[in-house]
């Protein structure tokens, strides 16, 4: 555990909680892509099946349980409790264009050809692109609530911090996971445009709106 890894995890946790609180307090999931949230629930489920097979630490287990629990709670709020506020018309990204190629890639390029390992790889690949429906929705409506941008910033920072963590682990532990690193780079690159808008607009007190 190093500072990048810990702050990355906490940033991830903050993102998840910001989103849950935003929906809960406003009693609305307007502007939130339910499809991205379903993808994240799939990501956590596929990755954390090792909860049943291996124990790493109390920290590791509790974070996994919290992430999974919050992911399903978010999906429940969007598709059940506050379904009336869900903006399905603008959430029109075709997720099969992500899930199918990513599934194929996980079968082809993995560390070990075993069911759990392929599911882990699938979750790593899927996570790297799972935010695309949300970014697509924002580009379609041309705007995002400020609280939604805070959510996206924390979520994007999490994998960015993990990149620093991997550099650290490579130098100090000789640890090196090519699949996670490449997917993490892709994931971070997808946020670059958003990071730019966040710093130049949201941090200066303006609402995030895109030119028509």
């Amino acid at each position: 555990m190093n500072i990048f890894r810990l702050t990355g995890d906490l940033s991830h946790l903050a993102a998840i909680i910001i989103l849950l609180l935003k929906i809960w307090k406003s009693r609305s999931c307007a502007g939130i892509s339910g499809k991205s949230q379903i993808l994240f629930a799939i990501v956590f489920t596929a990755r954390y099946l090792d909860l049943l097979t291996s124990f790493i630490s109390v920290y590791n287990t509790s974070m996994k349980v919290i992430y999974i629990g919050c992911a399903y709670a978010t999906v429940y709020l969007i598709y059940a409790k506050f379904r009336a506020t869900y903006d399905g018309n603008h959430d029109s990204f075709r997720v099969e264009f992500l899930v199918v190629p990513v599934g194929g890639l996980a079968v082809l390029i993995n560390h070990t050809f075993s069911p759990l390992e392929i599911l882990w790889t699938f979750s790593i690949y899927l996570e790297s692109v799972a935010i695309l429906p949300q970014l697509f929705m924002i580009s379609k409506t041309g705007e995002a609530e400020t609280i939604t941008t805070h959510y996206l910033f924390c979520l994007g920072m999490y994998r960015t911090l993990y990149l620093f963590n991997w550099v650290w682990r490579f130098y100090f532990e000789g640890f090196f996971d090519m699949i996670a690193i490449v997917a993490g780079l892709v994931q971070t690159v997808l946020y670059c445009d958003f990071f730019y808008l966040y710093v130049t607009k949201v941090l200066k007190g303006k609402k995030l709106s895109l030119p028509a």
Binding site: T112, S114, L116
Partner: peptide, 10 residues
């Protein structure tokens, strides 16, 4: 080789 690789990250 091991069928299961331990993944210690989240």
């Amino acid at each position: 080789h091991a069928l299961e690789i331990p993944h210690d990250e989240l």
